[in-house]
């Protein structure tokens, strides 16, 4: 207990003496981990957005919300009679709204902002021949029908979303990896400076027989705390990404598929835990390197 108190006191004192460098290290960790988290969320969002294309559904015909019964009947007639259609599933306004409600259960304000009558009803269609060429041809046929707002093919839509999410999340990830490296170096330097500031004390400690770990632990703790505080600061950013950035795509009318661009409830918290683990690890590694290279114990 006494020893734990000693470690904490030494660590806090050391951080306080070296505040500006410590702040720089913590902020770098925060920025890099925020990028890591954002990248994870975009990836997850994309996976969820393409989830409607399941059980053989290759393309979706979105109707205009105000499409009339005749227009719907015409589409249905084609679907029922065409030999190239194996089956389909009609998602009416109410069902679309239900789905929307489930998808955004954790965002009541978003759900409140829409009503069933603005939801585009849609047909999720399973073709007999699933080759890309055939799907595209069918999609074009349906796109030309009156009352059809848009046809999203699995191939094209998924490729688009995949493309988008891969690019964005990879760019973020590369930036994040570089910054994580920078943060590790900054933590290393901060701990190195802390070691320098306590050179005399360390000398006396060795002289009177303090064990090597006893000397090392406060410094390693210091680095780990940098990492953890940085991670903690990155967590609110995840919520901003979730509530602002991803919500922006969800609310956009231009690409209906982006409606599903969301992460499940709890994902942000899971990601937060990963960031804390990652931040702690980066801090520990950075300080461990500093301790082994400069402490000579």
């Amino acid at each position: 207990m006494y020893r734990l108190w000693y470690y904490l006191r030494e660590t806090v004192l050391s951080i306080w003496r070296n505040l500006s460098l410590t702040m720089a290290a913590i902020l770098t960790v925060a920025v890099s981990l925020a990028l890591v988290g954002a990248s994870m969320m975009i990836r997850e969002g994309a996976e969820r957005a393409t989830a409607q294309f399941q059980e053989g559904v290759e393309f979706i015909v979105f109707m205009n919300p105000d499409a009339n019964a005749d227009q719907n009947a015409a589409i249905r007639h084609v679907l029922d009679s065409s030999p190239s259609i194996e089956g389909y599933n009609y998602i009416d306004k109410a069902a679309a709204y239900d789905e929307f409600e489930t998808l955004f259960a954790d965002k009541p304000e978003l759900v409140e902002s829409v009503t069933p009558d603005v939801m585009p009803p849609s047909y999720r269609i399973v073709p007999t021949d699933r080759s890309a060429a055939n799907v595209n041809e069918l999609a074009n046929q349906f796109a030309a029908q009156p009352g059809v707002r848009e046809v999203a093919t699995a191939t094209e839509a998924i490729r688009q979303i995949d493309d988008f999410s891969t690019r964005v999340s990879q760019a973020l990830l590369i930036a994040a990896v570089v910054l994580v490296g920078v943060s590790a170096l900054l933590i290393l330097n901060t701990v190195f400076t802390a070691i320098g500031a306590r050179k005399q004390e360390i000398e006396v400690m060795k002289l009177v027989g303090a064990s090597n770990w006893f000397i090392r632990i406060p410094f390693m703790l210091e680095g780990t705390i940098h990492g953890l505080i940085g991670a903690a600061m990155a967590i609110p950013v995840l919520f901003v990404v979730d509530n602002e950035v991803m919500a922006f795509f969800q609310e956009s009318d231009s690409v209906p598929l982006f409606r599903g661009f969301a992460v499940p409830e709890g994902f942000v918290w899971d990601t937060s835990i990963w960031l804390l683990i990652l931040g702690g690890a980066v801090g520990m590694v950075g300080s461990a390197v500093a301790v082994t290279r400069y402490l000579d114990v």
Partner: peptide, 11 residues
């Protein structure tokens, strides 16, 4: 006291 504290002697 430092001479005792850093070798883990109890308070």
């Amino acid at each position: 006291a430092f001479g005792l504290e850093v070798i883990g002697r109890p308070r």
